[in-house]
Design a protein around this nucleic acid. Sequence first.
DNA 1: CGTTCAACCTGGGCGC
DNA 2: TGCGCCCAGGTTGAAC
Length: 292
Amino acid sequence: MPELPEVETMRRGIAALSGARILEARFPVGRCRPLSMRPAPGRLAEALGGAVIGPVTRHGKRVAIALAGGGPDAWLVIEPRMTGLLLVADPPTEKHLRMELLLDGPVRRLLFWDQRGLGTIRLLDAAGLERACGGAALGPDGLVVTAEALAERLGASRRAVKVALLDQRAVAGIGNIYAAEILHRAAIDPRVPCRRLRSDDFERLARAARRVLASAVDHEGSSIGDELYRTADNRKGRFQRLHRVYGRAGHPCRRCGGAIARIVQAQRSTFFCPGCQRAAGARGLVPGRRRA
DNA sequence: CGTTCAACCTGGGCGC
DNA sequence: TGCGCCCAGGTTGAAC
């Protein structure tokens, strides 16, 4: 579910909790897969109880909640993955509530709810935070990525540009929805190998990434159909209304009127407009063409 | 180096 | 009503 815009919206929705003390941390029994929580829930609850919430930051698709109060520096790092939500409002169901933090501030509790349970909760020290969210793990944030950074990190790659944009080490925060929307705005064929892109393609790509992601943040992310994503105070995002290609296979392109296509790349759906997104793609993608 | 597959999970929608 | 299958916003590791 959440990509950069949704995770940033969650971050903003809980940023005001800074300064609140955690009175108690609860991890409902039986809903904690061993791999998704580190350390184990018991130790997690022990470490969180009594801590004071500090600044809340975002690193790609991860939220880091700084913890103060006595002990050494620590961060609670939450990765929502497909269906995770950080909520101050009531959860959709009690069933998939994974973590409940009771607070002493005006907001009484912070929840992590996750239907599919793929999300992760980790308590990290400074070294762990660097390992999980530092420059070796994550590329530049999608909101501020530059053409130079993209060209440097992807320029030599043979991978299709859509697949490469999902690589968090290249650029952080882009997922399946926004990769499609960004490439449409940049008018680049998702199948083009990165190495075939020229500097003006990288310029359009970086500008499209910044603009699409910033606009999606302004609209509080995308809540598609009856999907689960909500803001921390349980409102739907509004960016889905502005999608140009994602989820629109067979529908007319809002720019050229041609039919939006759906293909599969790296086992995931890619939506694009074959009419608008071929300027760069035409080079080297002629059917039947072999290397000389 | 790059791709493919499976795995981790739940749940909605579809055809039969 | 039920069953089997496919799909879904993500990430990781193994195999080729």
